[in-house]
């Protein structure tokens, strides 16, 4: 079938972070690029996100942060993902991520980091590479 390989991308915010404008915008952009976005909104727990990754069979997970809590919450999520044997699902981070924290995030297993300067195209290229599924907007991938 022509529609066989849609990217299913789960987007969520963890903890008490309430600045959801960025992730809502990203959700719409990704939808317009042909991605199926499973949007969880704000106030999620690591456990809740892990359950959702499993039942939704998400290809990739995107988290957005506007506060400095991301090391803590991302670390917790990665641990829980490992415990459930789903650490192969790629995780990307967006929002106000400080460049000096990137090495630590990478060490936690985060595959994509998209700070304030990131372009849509960078995110799309990451999604296509991380999931191995084509995106129409990227041309002949």
């Amino acid at each position: 079938m022509s529609e066989g390989a849609k990217i299913r991308c789960l987007l969520a915010m963890l903890g008490t972070d309430v600045h959801s404008k960025g992730i809502r915008t990203l959700a719409q952009i990704l939808r317009d690029e042909g991605v199926e976005v499973i949007y969880l909104g704000e106030h999620n727990t690591a456990e809740g996100v892990v359950n959702a990754i499993i039942t939704e069979d998400a290809d990739v997970v995107g988290l957005s942060y506007s506060t400095a809590t991301y090391l803590h919450y991302t670390g917790e999520l990665m641990r829980k993902m490992r415990a459930e044997n789903i650490s192969e699902v790629p995780v990307m981070l967006g929002g106000l991520i400080h460049p000096e924290d990137e090495p630590e995030l990478r060490a936690l297993g985060v595959r994509g980091i998209f700070g304030p300067g990131a372009t849509t195209r960078q995110i799309l290229v990451f999604l296509a590479e991380a999931t191995g599924k084509a995106l129409p907007g990227l041309g002949g991938q």
Binding site: L30, D32, V37, Y39, L40, H43, E47, G48
Partner: peptide, 21 residues
């Protein structure tokens, strides 16, 4: 699904968040 791009924004779970865990 969006008929133009084939993408979709699946947002129903936002209302059911308390059952995620």
């Amino acid at each position: 699904s969006s008929p133009l791009t084939g993408g979709a924004l699946l947002g129903d779970r936002v209302r059911m968040g308390r059952h995620n865990a």
